[in-house]
Every structure is written in C-alpha cells, then in structure tokens.
Design a protein around this nucleic acid. Structure first.
Lengths: 264, 264
DNA sequence: TTCGCCTGTGAAAATCCTGTGAACGCAGGC
DNA sequence: GCCTGCGTTCACAGGATTTTCACAGGCGAA
C-alpha cells in the first residue's frame, strides 16, 4: 500500500545539522514540513493539521513527558515519533505507553527517520484529498465537496463550513452509526472534551436546514447513548421503502459504503 | 469502550530464550499469543485474526522480503514488527517501505518489544476503527458492531447500548461460561459492587428481546452459581442440529477463548 | 425434604442523554 | 467602531435508560 500521499510534518528539534539534512530530503520527497524551535501548545498543533510530529525530547526539558502525554491525548490521529539521544528501555517504554508511535535513537539516518514517519502515517489521511470527486447524491440531497455546499434541486442549504463538514462525514459513512467522539475527532480535528455538546448543536442546525429544504425526508437518526447515523428516509407515506437500503443494511451496502477507507 | 483490548499476537522466531521470556510477559498481560516456528502462508495468518505479528527475519531466510511484502499486502490491518539481529539502515528502510510497522534490533528488552507491539496495534486499531467489522453471525442472529445493534433477518432487536455490549461480549466468548464479575468488569468498565444485580437484569432484557425476534432459539444459558454462557440452540425439534456451528466464528474462536478473563 | 443461597421478574426510583432556545465571544466586513 | 455571521457554552425540559428493591421460584447440599 504505498500510497505516496504528501505528509505534513512538524519537527521539534534544535539540532540544526540533523534538521537541515532531514529537511532537504523531505522537501525532495514533496513533504510539507515545518521546524519548531520548542514545545508548542497542542492547540496550535491542531491548527497545523499535521500527519506527524518528530520531536527531540532534549528540547522539551522537564515537561517532556507531560507534553507528550497531552499531545498524544489531544491528537490521537497525529503520528508522534520521538527522535532523541541516549535513552533507557524504561524511558522508551514509558513514551510508547504514553501514546508515542515510534522512538528512534540519535544519531540516526534521515532516510530511516523518514521511513519510520511514513510507516506511522500510513493510515487514513484526513479526506479532503479528493475535492474534485463527483457530487454525492443521497435522498433528494446533493452534496458537493467542490463547493462545500449541499443542494436540493437547485436550492442551496446555506451550510456553514462546519455544518458542511459534519454532513459530509455523516453521509460518507452512510448507514453507519458514528459516535460523538469519533465525529468530533474527525470534524474538529482533536479530542472532544468531556461534556462538549457542539456535535449535538450542529446536528440540530443540520436537521433544521435539511428539514427546511427537504421536508418529507429524515436524514439523521439518533442512536441513544451512542451517536448519530445518516440514512435518508422518506417519511411520505406508508412504505418505509425509503431508506436507501431497503433493509437496515443489505450486505452489499456495508461493503460498498466504506470502500473509500478500506482501500488504503 | 475497550481501549485496551487484549492483543492477539503471533511470533515467528526460533530464539527459544527470547520467545520464552516474551511469552511469560504477554501471558501475564492477558494477551493471546501463538508461537510459530517458521514462515506461514499469509492465508493462515488471516484465519488467526491477529492484531500483530512479531517476526525474526533470520527465520525466514532468503524469502524474507518477499514474504514480508506479501503479508503486508494481504493483511493491511495486521501490525507487523520485525525483531531481528544486526541490520543496516538500508534493510530497515526497505522493510518499513514494504509495509512493516516497526523494526527492532536484537537483543531487545521484551518490555520494549511489547510496548512497540502495543503502539503499533493502537495505531492500527484507530485507523481501522469501525471500518472492518464484518457482522458476527450466530444462530439466526446477526451482530453488527458498526451499528451497535443486532438483527434477525431485517428486524432490529432495538438493543440499548449496554444491552448490545453485553450481547457482544457474550457472543464473542461463545461457548464459554463467563462469571458475573468478569462480565461486569468488561461491560461496565469497573469492578462490580457486592450484591449488584445489574448483570442479571440485563440478561433478562436481552433474553426478552431475543425471544421476541427469534423465538425457537435459546441463546443465553445460566450456569448456577457461576455465570452465563452464550450458545445458540434451536429449541425446535430433535435438538441436535442445535448449537450453531454452521455460523461464522468457529474454531479459532474456541481455542483462544479469552483466557485472560476466565481467570479473574 | 428442608434450609440456605441463587436467579428470574416486575416495577419504582434515580440517572443519564438528547433536543432546544438563547446568551456570549470572536473575527471579518462595512 | 459597529454590525453580522459563526461557533461555543449554558441551562432546562422531556424522555430513555440504568439501577435498585422486594419478592417469588429454583437449585443444591445436608
């Protein structure tokens, strides 16, 4: 599965020699890279939409463990690789248990560092890659990734960016129940704080806008204690024949639906 | 949420010393492990439903690269860790690019090997998340993890979250008697208070819903003074054909039965 | 068979979860 | 600066779900 996606990498290191050599190679490989001189609040890392973070513990100082822990917790999708000098087994184990994905000793060959970063990043890339793709049609709804907007017929739903991303996520996982944490994680990009109701609020907004443009259809279903499921369903008359999948989920649906992910 | 599911690991290595020490630890941690003496066809690995594979290249001999490539390609969800003696940067890079997730040098501390295996599994699991989950079929029941729901034919059982998790736990341990404490621990996530009857109550609810949708079958059996056992059994006629082997799970499930939990 | 436990059951009580309306803060545009 | 749109946070209400209780029926051992 050598999908050669471009990788967005941040490096926290002050070893200019190593960083220079590494940068040359990553640029040559077409990666997007950013070098940071010290610890950066996790919130800012979120905004960078990174695939991976390479960090030298020496730069972090005392708060190293604490920092690693927070980063790994807040950005479960971020690949974290520690690249640092001498270390003991206990330290490496501690780091890995904390959520670090790989631990390399210095000095190390930049090629190996890159290979390990790739290995860690080898997993779902945050969509967005295929902005061109054909509009997704579900129910009487048309979702256009290229416009960040959804339509019914020719009328726009006037979705905001967040609303659109949420709708797209739900629609892509059609038929699947998505948990709030997972939704938040994917749309907002970082871990959901306990008690955060943002997802619910946006679901309501979406439902309102959907209802306004497409009355007679139900799109988003609540699964109590779990999350939400997207599945267009005509509330018109008798026949529940509506749901895009006659029965709850004919097998071929389950196969097809996730094709975009399984591929890899 | 079982964040720390038990890991199913296979080890391909003939270094008995290392394997012995490692096995002791993995068992202590409740992992399910199997030691293989040599390369095994990828098809057989598939059947083992592993989370991770630890392999010493030395055992593989000439076909090592070829074998690694095939395994990584055929089992994209499997975490592959190479643990081998001396190696060059070029070899490590080659392996990692081929799809290997981590590469450890020997000798290595078993604790670090475990930590790395955990890290790899954690990463794999996150990316795979809800995608795979082929429905588990038992009796005339269909349990869908991606829906947090069970069905008979096209009819939903309307299980609540807890009910579903309980059913899933029981079904996963098909044929094995689970003690109340173990059940509670796994489903509720913390220790059961003395005298708590929650498990019994939920078993009753499950039985009711199962009976409603699938009369003519008995799924949950009580073991007096011990706990419950899940085993679909047609009450129709001539008993025999009863316990559902025709179904999917079959063998390897029964071998591996959560050894870690039965203990408790 | 009798006597302790255990388990099945029904229903009330306690909790938790989601829908909703509205206030708040922030940033960009005028 | 002021206005407007957007995202976040709060508090409350109505339900759904889970827990707790008390009692009845079973099971096993003496």
């Amino acid at each position: 599965m050598n999908s050669q996606q471009t990788i967005r990498l941040a490096v926290i290191d002050d070893d200019s020699g190593f960083v220079t050599v590494l940068s040359k190679r990553t640029e040559g490989a077409g990666w997007q890279q950013r070098v940071l001189s010290g610890a950066i609040p996790p919130e800012e890392l979120v905004a960078m939409k990174l695939n991976a973070l390479l960090v030298d513990l020496a730069v972090l100082g005392d708060e190293a463990w604490d920092y690693l822990g927070r980063v790994c917790e807040m950005l479960p999708d971020l690949g974290v690789i520690v690249c640092t000098g001498r270390s003991t087994v206990a330290q490496r184990v501690r780091g890995l248990r904390l959520g670090v994905d790989d631990w390399i000793g210095k000095p190390c060959h930049p090629e190996e560092a890159m290979a390990r970063i790739e290995a860690v990043s080898r997993r779902r890339r945050r969509s967005r890659a295929e902005v061109d793709s054909s509009p997704l049609v579900v129910g009487e709804l048309q979702i256009r990734a290229d416009q960040f907007q959804a339509f019914v017929g020719t009328g726009s739903l006037d979705l905001t960016r967040r609303e659109f991303e949420l709708l797209q996520l739900l629609a892509d996982a059609k038929g699947q129940v998505l948990e709030r944490e997972a939704i938040y994680q994917r749309v907002w990009g970082y871990a959901m704080a306990h008690g955060d109701r943002s997802v619910d609020v946006f679901i309501r907004k979406l439902r309102q806008k959907l209802e306004k443009r497409s009355p007679g259809w139900r799109y988003i279903h609540t699964h109590f204690g779990v999350g939400y499921r997207f599945d267009p369903e005509s509330t018109a008359r008798g026949g529940a024949g509506a749901t895009s999948e006659g029965a709850i989920a004919s097998d071929d649906d389950s196969q097809v639906v996730h094709s975009s992910f399984t591929v890899a």
